[in-house]
């Protein structure tokens, strides 16, 4: 089976400062890759390079497109990239308000991607929106309410619904549980795990929270100062860390 995403030598610098350096990996369909590291380790820069939101200085980001097979997203035209971003890709932001339209109802938020790809039947769009609200455990009675009236956890679940409604093939997540209470985090993780399993999602999840990757990720990359210092199967990396930095990360979590 050919990889869904193939990353080769991706490097991004800010002046003399290294964002991320020489990152390579393959992501196969149905696989969830976790990227962990402390803040400033370059994981968010890498994610933005992969999702086409930042242009890497060098390297290739090859995505297996539906129509034309493997294509380097760096050399795609902007229209092509934006088309991918609203069809086959999804991006879940750390802060729900970056990923939602706060002035638009929950139903409108979920329906936007459908309308962007040509849905023109109000009843169907609304039906799908209601269906997705249920799947992310938001009461259907709130369909016409704006997300500004939602709790943080609900906003994050709404953002996930809005992203998954068009059945994307690859989901990028940037600290999806960041900034939420611990109990809310647990519920969201549970929900995400269910969705990943049921939909067979492929995803790349950036987080500093090892509990998140333990639960969701098949494989793991550990980043420090822009470099990948260790990679492997999640359990393997977390249970038998080889690199000193990974050992530190794992032990500091255990101490808590």
């Amino acid at each position: 089976m050919s990889p869904l995403l193939s990353v080769r030598g991706v490097t991004k610098r800010y002046g003399t400062h290294i964002g991320c350096a020489d990152v390579s990996f393959d992501l196969h369909p149905g696989e969830v890759m976790g990227i962990v590291g402390e803040s400033g380790s370059g994981k968010t820069t890498l994610l933005n390079c992969l999702a086409g939101q930042l242009a890497p200085d060098t390297g290739e980001v090859i995505f297996d497109t539906r129509a034309e097979g493997p294509r380097d997203t760096r050399t795609m035209s902007e229209p092509e990239r934006r088309m991918l971003a609203r069809t086959d890709w999804a991006f879940v932001h750390q802060h729900a308000r970056d990923g939602l339209r706060m002035g638009v109802s929950a139903g409108g938020n979920v329906g936007e991607r459908l309308m962007a790809v040509g849905a023109r039947h109000y009843g169907d769009i609304r039906g799908k929106a209601l269906d997705w609200l249920e799947r992310v455990e938001i009461d259907g009675a709130r369909v016409d309410d704006r997300p500004s009236t939602f709790s943080g956890g609900m906003q994050q679940r709404l953002q996930i619904a809005r992203n998954l409604v068009t059945g994307p093939r690859l989901v990028f997540m940037d600290e999806p549980t960041g900034g939420l209470d611990v109990s809310v985090q647990a519920r969201l993780l549970d929900l995400l795990r269910g969705l990943v399993r049921d939909m067979g999602l492929s995803a790349i999840i950036v987080t500093h929270d090892l509990a998140v990757v333990r639960l969701l990720a098949d494989r793991l990359m550990v980043m420090k100062s822009g470099h990948v210092v260790e990679a492997g199967l999640t359990d393997q990396v977390l249970d038998d860390p080889q690199h000193a930095y990974t050992q530190l990360l794992v032990s500091s979590v255990l101490q808590v």
């Binding site: 609203r86 139903g107 409108g108 790809v117 023109r120 369909v143 016409d144």
Partner: peptide
Amino acid sequence: EYGLMHVKLYEDIAR
């Protein structure tokens, strides 16, 4: 990218 235009119409009908 005209999805947003329909979002506006959607909101009208919803409200």
